[in-house]
Design a protein around this nucleic acid. Structure first.
Length: 734
DNA sequence: ATGACATCGTTTTTT
DNA sequence: ACGATGTCAT
């Protein structure tokens, strides 16, 4: 996303010339394309968001389309907000009349507008993934499905995957009894959702797709309206999203897709890069415009990225270039342990900071979240302030979900998920037994839990009374007052306020968060035309808030490579460049897995503007075990002449050289973490070629223990990778 | 109802 | 190693 904002201010609004000035020929060609479908292959840092927004502004300011004829689709709320903001800066019109949003947001909007045709209650609620999981667990219980044999997680994936392919339960092929059972759960789950008036994320898309495909009148209405459909990050679309786009585009509308096949890193969640080729076929796209000029990075960084990605098969083909200098070489550092790697990074960050690079202009990237621990430890020790991205989000906190559950019940009492969440929170003496009775009764009379509860009597009916009381008391109140009322009368606030002792601190935080919810509601009213409770609840699920609430202060960014996509920094550290970690072990088995990992590495490399560090460690603590990994093959795929090694090759050091890196063992009876096995006489080493009676030839890729006892991981030429106990495996040197 | 203990899983993630 | 989740006893 945004990289050219700073060097191309649009103070001159309006006329054609102003919009196009400052664009390079390819960007300009893309913006000025005729009203036919097109694919813009936009490399990292090539100004794709600018092209997308300028295209819209160009179409509108030249009278080629009215604002209401534009449909602009993104994946994240962040991207859609940015697009909206840029457009309002470029166009002297109210961007609110344009349909700009995420796939889910737009589908929600369509379903709300046509809830009857979509067979949904007007106030339908949206399940997030954790709500969905509890819903699935309930269905499984009702169907007596063994959750050992069928992990709810797997069912959730099964349902989601199929919906993303556009498939309903009855359309899924039942290969075997196991799958047949899963299909049963799928069907029952959908029925339950329908009964309860809720939809999950993929349902939002599928239901909207079905609405438009079945209802000719509606379909034609929207096809008539959206003459120009523009899609960001097109490589991330799943099959259903693509079909949805095709449906809206119809025969004559222009689908303007912007994407980068080399940055496709979400196959694991259903994204299908193949949609790019399909688009070319289905829409008879004649020419693809490639944006290859990069405005972000120095030459060496791009050379490295190009060299790496050139090893992937089935690319549409693209090579980044820059008008800038070659810049510095990429700095490579090999550390003895993950702790040393982290210390090195903390030190470098401090140096760079002292030289004037803002902390917020630096990022440490890693393949998996578990790696942040060691980094945080070292940063705290070095006194560097940092922010870790990817924690829990605001609307996902327990107390917030509780409050939202009460609010949802006001709007839709059939929402059993919400009822179960709060019927006994705060505790009101409704235990597991009562809840079971309630579920029995609901099943028997074929009603929802709320209706069953109304019939039950006792404390349970008291809960029903509470909800009804709150509903009528808030019926005509503005949103913030509804929230305030519910926080006070549900007993939630009091529950946390009454907390004492050890939990006091935690409770105070929850109270603060509940007050923050009240603020969010107030803010929501100011920012949105539709300030109803339903709209607010939808917002809470669809826009669960920033991953990291507090911003502002200058801090180093810590995040996964995935989270870094679309961002850029002056200096970037890519850490943990080890075989098995990055590329990740699990990618070896999936087909196309290694290519996706390589694209991930490509994304990581192209985040840096000026300085790039590539670091790895000989030994790493993972899941409570010390692992010895080889250097990442990706590092080997980068041209030598672009690299500057900051560390001598550790494999050539004498054991004593390690001691300088060992933490001081002052007063500790525990041994300092074992240095990477000082190579003993006759011990096995990583990288060594070996022979095994049964498996044949191979190379040692991992080591646990000291090399004479413990186990080794051997990658056999023909038998694959295996862990062998040295005590038993008769390995010989090959 | 609630805390102590056991078990499990552990790549990436938006909506 | 560690956190989340679940079970069991009180």
């Amino acid at each position: 996303m945004g990289n050219q904002v700073s060097d191309s201010p649009f103070h001159l609004q309006g006329s054609k010339m102003d919009l196009l000035s400052g664009l390079n020929p390819e960007q300009r060609a893309a913006v000025e394309l005729p009203a036919r479908s097109a694919l813009i292959l936009a490399g990292a840092g090539s100004g794709k968001t600018r092209v997308l927004t300028t295209r819209i502004a160009y179409l509108i300011s030249n009278g080629l389309v009215s604002p209401s004829g534009v449909l602009a689709v993104t994946f994240t709320n962040k991207a859609s907000k940015e697009m909206q903001a840029r457009l309002s800066a470029m166009l002297p019109i109210n961007t609110r009349s344009m349909w700009i949003g995420t796939f889910h947001g737009l589908c929600n909007r369509l379903l709300r507008a046509h809830y009857r045709e979509a067979n949904l209650p007007q106030t339908f609620q949206i399940l997030d993934s954790s709500d969905q999981q509890s819903a699935i667990k309930r269905v499984m219980k009702a169907l007596n499905v063994d959750d050992e044999k069928y992990p709810p997680r797997e069912l959730q994936n099964f349902i989601g995957r199929n919906k993303e392919q556009g498939l309903r339960a009855h359309e899924v092929e039942a290969y075997d009894p196991y799958t047949r059972r899963k299909i049963e759960v799928f069907a029952a789950y959908d029925e339950q959702c329908q009964r309860e008036g809720v939809v999950d994320f993929s349902e939002l898309l599928l239901r909207c797709y079905e609405l438009l495909s079945r209802n000719q009148q509606l379909r034609e209405h929207y096809q008539e309206r959206f003459k120009h459909i523009l899609v960001d990050e097109f490589q991330d679309t799943n099959p259903l999203q693509y079909r949805w786009l095709k449906l809206l585009a119809g025969q004559s509308n222009a689908l303007f897709a912007v994407g980068d096949d080399d940055q496709s890193i979400y196959a694991f969640r259903g994204a299908n890069v193949g949609n790019m080729q399909e688009l070319l076929r289905d829409f008879h796209v004649e020419n693809v415009i490639k944006l290859e000029q990069n405005y972000r990075s120095h030459g060496n960084i791009l050379d490295a990225a190009n060299a790496l990605i050139s090893r992937n098969r089935n690319r549409l083909g693209k090579e980044l270039w820059t008008a800038e200098h070659k810049g510095e070489p990429l700095r490579v550092y090999e550390a003895p342990t993950d702790m040393d790697e982290a210390r090195f990074i903390a030190d470098e960050v401090r140096h760079l900071h002292r030289e004037g690079v803002a902390l917020s202009e630096m990022a440490v990237l890693y393949r998996s979240n578990a790696q942040s621990r060691a980094l945080e430890h070292a940063l705290v020790a070095a006194g560097v302030s940092y922010r870790v991205y990817g924690g829990q989000r605001f609307y996902e906190r327990q107390e917030i979900k509780h409050a939202l559950a009460y609010l949802r019940l006001l709007v839709n009492q059939d929402d059993d998920n919400s009822l179960l969440r709060v019927i006994n929170f705060p505790t009101r003496g409704i235990g597991a037994r009562s809840i079971e009775q309630l579920q029995e009764s609901a099943k028997q009379y074929n009603t929802t839990l709320f209706d069953a509860a109304a019939r039950m009597g006792g404390k349970v009916t008291g809960f029903v009374g509470l909800i009804e009381e709150m509903r009528s008391a808030t019926a005509n109140l503005p949103l913030p007052e509804i929230v305030d009322h519910v926080l006070a009368h549900s007993g939630l606030m009091a529950n946390y306020q009454n907390e004492t002792g050890a939990k006091k601190h935690e409770a105070q935080e929850r109270i603060d968060n509940l007050n923050e919810l009240l603020n969010a509601a107030t803010l929501f009213v100011h920012e949105n035309e539709d300030d109803s409770l339903v709209a607010f609840l939808t917002h809470a699920t669809l826009e669960a808030g920033e991953h990291q609430a507090e911003a502002g202060s200058d801090a180093l960014h810590l995040m996964t490579v995935h989270a870094a996509k679309g961002l850029e920094f002056h200096s970037v550290f890519i850490s943990g460049l080890e075989e098995g970690l990055f590329p990740h072990q699990n990618s070896q088995n999936e087909d196309g897995g290694l290519d996706e990992e390589r694209r991930l590495m490509y994304v990581a490399l192209t985040r840096a503007r000026r300085r790039l560090y590539l670091t790895f460690a000989q030994s790493r603590m993972l899941h409570g075990q010390v692992n010895y990994n080889m250097m990442s093959s990706f590092l080997r795929e980068l041209p030598d002449e672009l690299l500057q090694w900051l560390s001598p090759r550790l494999t050539q050091r004498t054991p004593s050289a390690f001691r300088a890196y060992s933490p001081p063992a002052a007063g500790s009876t525990k041994l300092p973490p074992a240095p990477p096995a000082p190579v003993k006489e006759g011990a096995w080493r990583i990288g060594q070629r070996v022979f095994h009676q049964k498996f044949g030839e191979g190379t040692i890729t991992g080591l646990e223990g000291n090399g004479t006892e413990g186990r080794v991981q051997v990658n056999f030429k023909h038998a694959g990778s295996k862990w062998l106990a040295l005590e038993y495996a008769k390995l010989t040197s090959a």
